[in-house]
């Protein structure tokens, strides 16, 4: 009896460590695999008798040289950055005023409008890409980056408006009302008082929107088929192939180069996104 109760804390600790170790291993394994593959020589990589976890030959930068000098990877990165920044800009222009308005609308109408906008976030791109492909080609945007610039904000605006609405609601309204009483018009009061206070929320929206643009796959695959105009998410899986042969070293290099910064950035804001989704269920 006394022996077992003595051991109990250690046993709990042991179980905890084991559980976390297993989960950590499975979570990080694909990233480790990207890194190992990206720095391995082809002769090492494609030798089935070699231990794949070890560098049986010295590491190499050959895959990164190929990636940066002989493929369109950097072009895709530039396209992604351009599309991402445009998406962020359009999203903010649409969602910031909408969120502010929703946060000030009183009564049932405000609540209903907010829920309606949030519901459109649930409509998946996989349901819309077929009619959108026709709309895009009718507008003459097929195989142009404009196709992505005009469609991506539709994936981000509903959620960002919802997220920022919650944020504006949490700001003290008295400050704004004081400015209004002092004779400022509503726009000035918003720009001078509310906007600076909302910077953390807007930063969250920027990260969410930009990473969404990097992530997006189906619109990029459907609307843009010219290799020079692809984003990384569409280019890497479709164009880093010669015939049937995948350039695994270069592909894993590109996956590593894209994944790490995006994941590290997104992760820092993840809790705020989740708060946006769970708003209500926690209260």
């Amino acid at each position: 009896m006394s022996a077992s109760s003595h051991l109990r804390p250690y046993l709990i600790k042991l179980v905890l460590v084991a559980v976390l170790a297993i989960f950590l291993a499975q979570a990080l394994f694909p990233f480790a695999w990207m890194a190992i593959t990206a720095f391995k020589r082809d002769s090492d990589l494609y030798n089935p008798t070699n231990n794949p976890f070890l560098f049986n030959e010295p590491p190499t930068l050959a895959h990164f040289r190929l990636l940066f000098n002989e493929t369109k990877f950097l072009r895709w990165v530039a396209n992604t950055a351009g599309v991402g920044l445009s998406t962020v800009l359009i999203t903010l222009v649409l969602a910031v005023p909408a969120a502010y308005a929703l946060s000030r609308l009183r009564g049932r109408l405000g609540q209903q409008l907010a829920v309606a906008i949030f519901l459109t976030y649930l409509v998946p791109p996989t349901l819309l890409f077929l009619p959108l492909s026709q709309i895009v080609s009718t507008l003459g945007f097929q195989d142009k980056l404009w196709a992505l610039v005009i469609t991506y904000p539709s994936l981000s605006t509903p959620f960002v408006a919802w997220l920022l609405m919650g944020f504006f609601r949490s700001l003290p309204q008295e400050l704004e009302e004081a400015a209004l009483v002092d004779g400022a018009d509503r726009f000035t009061a918003f720009r001078r008082i509310m906007l600076p206070l909302a910077v953390p929320g807007i930063l969250t929206a920027v990260i969410f929107t930009f990473t969404l643009a990097v992530n997006e796959f189906i619109y990029a695959l459907t609307f843009v088929s010219i290799s020079d105009l692809k984003t990384v998410s569409a280019g890497v899986p479709t164009d880093l192939i010669r015939g049937d042969v995948f350039f695994w070293g270069a592909i894993m290099g590109s996956a590593l180069v894209v994944s790490l910064p995006v994941a590290l950035l997104y992760n820092a804001f993840l809790d705020r996104f989740v708060e946006g989704l769970t708003a209500g269920a926690l209260r």
């Binding site: 950590l24 990233f31 990473t211 990384v232 899986p237 592909i251 996956a255 994941a263 950035l265 992760n267």
Partner: peptide, 21 residues
Amino acid sequence: YLLLLPWAAPVVMSTIAWKWV
């Protein structure tokens, strides 16, 4: 933070790593 990385990483990039796995 480390455990959350699979959700934060771009899905295309991590899936292509799985394809190689």
